[in-house]
Design a protein around this nucleic acid. Structure first.
Lengths: 149, 149
DNA sequence: CTACGATCTAGACCTCGGTCTAGGTCAAGA
DNA sequence: TCTTGACCTAGACCGAGGTCTAGATCGTAG
C-alpha cells in the first residue's frame, strides 16, 4: 500500500476487475499510455490509472464495446485538440444506450404484463381455467402451444 | 405464403431472426416442441411458432439468456400445472432487468455529465484552457492523464 | 421434365470479453 | 538467507450467441 503507486492486486480490489482482466485491458490498449513499472518489471498503477479504470467500468456497464473505449483512450492519450471527437464518441454512445434503454423498458413492460396475468390466476387458483376455453390475449400463445404437445 | 404454415425463410422475414439462427434456436430447444415438417422434411412453422419467436425476441432484447428461455419453453411445453414456476422465472428476470436498467441509467448520467462539460468548452472554444491549470472534476482524469504522455 | 432457388444436416468457424495455465521472477517478512 | 505469496509473459482456453460451409435434397415455375 505505497503512497504513490499501487500493485495490480491493489488495483484489482479497488476496481473490481480481475488481475487477468487488468492485464487484458492493458494489452487491448484501454489504458492511457502504458502503466508504470517497478525496477523489477511489475506494474505500478497511479491514482489516475485507477480513476480511468473506474470510468472504463462505467462505460462497460452501459454496454460500450472495448473497441470504443480503446478509441476514446487513444483520443485522451493524444492530448488536447480532439475534444470534438471525444464528444462525438460519447454522444454516439449516449444515443445507442438511450435506444437500448427504451427497447428494454418496452419489452420489460410486456413481460410484466404477462407475469401479472400469471400472478392473478395463480393466486386465485384459477390458472387451470386459462387453458380450457377461449384464452386471454397475453397467454393465448402459451395456451395454444399446448394444442399438440 | 401458404395459409397455415410458413417456410423458414418467411419466418426469418417476419421475426428478423436469420435462417441460421432459427435453426440454431430450435437445436437449443427454444421452441415449443418441434417445428412441423413438410413431407420432404422442410420446416413448416405455424402462426404460434412465429408468435413464440417474437416473444423470444422480447426476452432476448432485455438480456434473458438462451438457457432461461429454454427453461421457460420447457415449462410451457409441459402444459398447465407449472404456472407458479413460469411466474417465478419471469419475476426473477424482471428483477434482474430492473437492476440493470438502474445501473445503466446511473452510468449514462455520468457519461452525459462528461459530454456536457466537453460540449460547453468545445462550443466556447475554451477547451484548451481545461488543460492549463487546475482542472474541473469531470475532466480532471483525462487532463492529468496527459501528465507524462 | 428441368432448372434453379430455397432448405436440409452436420459440423466448423467466428466475435466478444474474459479467464486460466505453465514456467519463471520479484519482494517482503522471519 | 530463505520462504512464500504476488507478479511476470505468452499463449491456450472458455462460454455465449451466433454465423457459415459443404454437399445433398426439395419444390415450384416454366
Amino acid at each position: 500500500m505505497s503512497d504513490e503507486s499501487l500493485t495490480i492486486g491493489e488495483v484489482s480490489e479497488r476496481t473490481g476487475l480481475g488481475i487477468h482482466t487488468l492485464r487484458y485491458y492493458e494489452r487491448q490498449g484501454l489504458l492511457l499510455g502504458s502503466v508504470g513499472r517497478s525496477s523489477g518489471g511489475q506494474r505500478r498503477y497511479s491514482a489516475f490509472d485507477v480513476e480511468w479504470l473506474q470510468l472504463c467500468n462505467r462505460f462497460r456497464a452501459c454496454g460500450m464495446p472495448l473497441s470504443d473505449i480503446r478509441r476514446y483512450a487513444e483520443l485522451v492519450a493524444a492530448g488536447p485538440g480532439n475534444e470534438q471527437q471525444r464528444l462525438e464518441l460519447l454522444r454516439t454512445h449516449e444515443i445507442r444506450v438511450r435506444a437500448e434503454l427504451a427497447q428494454m423498458t418496452e419489452n420489460l413492460a410486456v413481460i410484466e404484463a404477462k407475469a401479472r396475468l400469471y400472478a392473478e390466476h395463480v393466486e386465485s387458483g384459477t390458472a387451470g381455467t386459462l387453458w380450457t376455453g377461449q384464452t386471454p390475449t397475453c397467454l393465448a400463445l402459451e395456451a395454444m402451444a399446448n394444442r399438440d404437445s
